[in-house]
Design a protein around this nucleic acid. Structure first.
Length: 395
DNA sequence: AGGTATTCACATGAAACTATTCTCTGAGTTAGG
DNA sequence: TAACTCAGAGAATAGTTTCATGTGAATACCTGT
């Protein structure tokens, strides 16, 4: 079995070229954005503090790669010319690393060689340590905070306000902040003073359209696959799928990779359009199942309840779910939560797109949410199998 | 018939609580000189 | 006397609970015709 596997030629040449981490030498169709970004940051090379910058864009529009690309070009240029410039990048989405005010600052500080404990210190102390570390740099520092909405949602104005203020405490360094987010409404939740100083400049990364996605896929696939294994219909098809989902390049690449894997596993010599179709389904199911697996037990219990209800009732509301949930909970070996919390859990599930929860008012009969599952049958079967396994495990 | 008031069944918000993990500090203990 | 140990106070954080308030429209109730 292993012999035949090895003997068979792989369709892939360099699979990594289709993964998230891969950094192409050039970013296609983002020339305008990169130029604008560079323009804003240019004063840094003269030693002036560039404006703070806010970058918007849906997932997979190249905002992260684009920003990092420009920043690192700039940094290496500065190093060459011996200009005092430093760029630090943090992703505020990383759990346990930078997803709270405290952790974000301590992660930033660690970029300057200051190691701080993961917990236990007052926040003020962290700021002090950070700003003194900054000051010893004696240079211009660009702080790039990716997925900044994560922290802002958690600690509101605090973080941004404190970051704004940090410049006034510094003697020999200056900081500029680049915030990256996919939440267009983020700044509305922020105090107006912070808002105006944080978003001195704004930049929007528009979604890719189908032709642009095709170009990107074309470029990557020439690296990723053996020559001539891709049917000409494949790339346009992947691009079209992804374009429908708000032009997400990451998704397009995933799709292409999955199509390749599907073809390879079925022993096909070439990748064709049918493989793409199979890949779409598989990708959907796989991400959904993976998501469910990673949920906390209580969420699983709620989801299990909803699926069970769905089998018997066409329509149900929060109240129905909670009633049934109370019976389901022991199966998962958990103690029951309050309805308040379950309501929130339902909302959380809804926000991930696995189900819909719409508030409806039924007049005399109150106000509630009607819940519906948003996954296809095949996926549903897999998910409920996963959950049932969980129930068995709890015994 | 038309208008207003009620009422339901939750939604939504805010604050407070719990448990866990971690640091820091100072008191008490110990071993060696 | 210096080094070590250890308990207790304080913080941050995640996940909840408790308490309080909000809400949209189908119905019940009332009014005047």
């Amino acid at each position: 079995m292993f012999e035949t596997y090895l003997r068979r030629d792989s369709l892939f040449a360099e699979k990594g070229a289709l993964s998230d981490e891969f950094r192409p030498q050039a970013l296609l169709h983002r020339e305008r954005e990169q130029k604008m970004l560079a323009n804003v940051l240019l004063p840094a090379l003269r030693g002036d503090k560039p404006s703070n910058l806010f970058i918007y864009g849906k997932t997979g529009t190249g905002k992260t790669i684009g920003t990092r690309f420009v920043c690192s070009e700039m940094e290496s240029f500065a190093r060459e010319k011996r200009l005092p410039l430093k760029v630090v990048y943090v992703n505020a989405q990383l759990k346990k690393v930078a997803d709270t005010e405290y952790r974000l600052i301590s992660t930033l500080a660690s970029h300057f060689g200051v190691t701080l404990p993961a917990t236990g210190l007052p926040t003020g102390k962290i700021y002090k340590a950070f700003s003194s570390a900054l000051d010893t740099q004696k240079s211009l520092v660009l702080i790039v905070i990716d997925e900044i909405d994560n922290v802002v949602r958690k600690c509101g104005n605090e973080l941004l306000y404190n970051l704004m203020r940090i410049n006034s405490e510094l003697k020999s360094s200056r900081v500029s902040i680049i915030g990256i987010t996919n939440d267009l409404n983020l700044l509305k939740q922020v105090d107006s003073r912070v808002r105006s100083s944080l978003s001195e400049e704004e930049l929007v990364f528009a979604p890719y359209d189908a032709t642009q996605l095709s170009d990107i896929l074309e470029a990557r696939s020439s690296v990723a696959f053996q020559p001539g294994v891709i049917d000409q219909s494949v790339i346009p098809k992947c691009a079209a799928y992804a374009a429908r989902e708000h032009g997400d390049a990451r998704r397009a690449l995933n799709l292409l990779r999955m199509a390749g894997e599907v073809a390879e596993r079925s022993g096909a010599p070439r990748i064709d359009a049918t493989h793409v179709d199979m890949a779409v389904e598989k990708l959907d199911t796989e991400t959904a199942v993976e998501f469910v697996k990673n949920q906390p037990l209580q969420s699983k219990a709620v989801l299990y309840t909803i699926i069970a209800l769905k089998e018997t009732h066409p329509d149900f509301t929060t109240g129905d779910i909670y009633t049934k949930y109370k019976a389901v909970c022991p199966l998962f070996g958990q103690k029951c939560l309050t309805q308040r919390r379950v309501s929130d859990l339902i909302n959380e599930l809804a926000s991930t797109g696995i189900l819909s929860a719409d508030v409806v008012s039924k007049g005399r009969y109150g106000r509630s949410k009607t819940i519906d599952l948003l996954v296809n049958n095949q996926t549903l079967v897999k998910i409920s199998a996963t959950l049932r396994a969980e129930v068995v495990a709890a015994y």
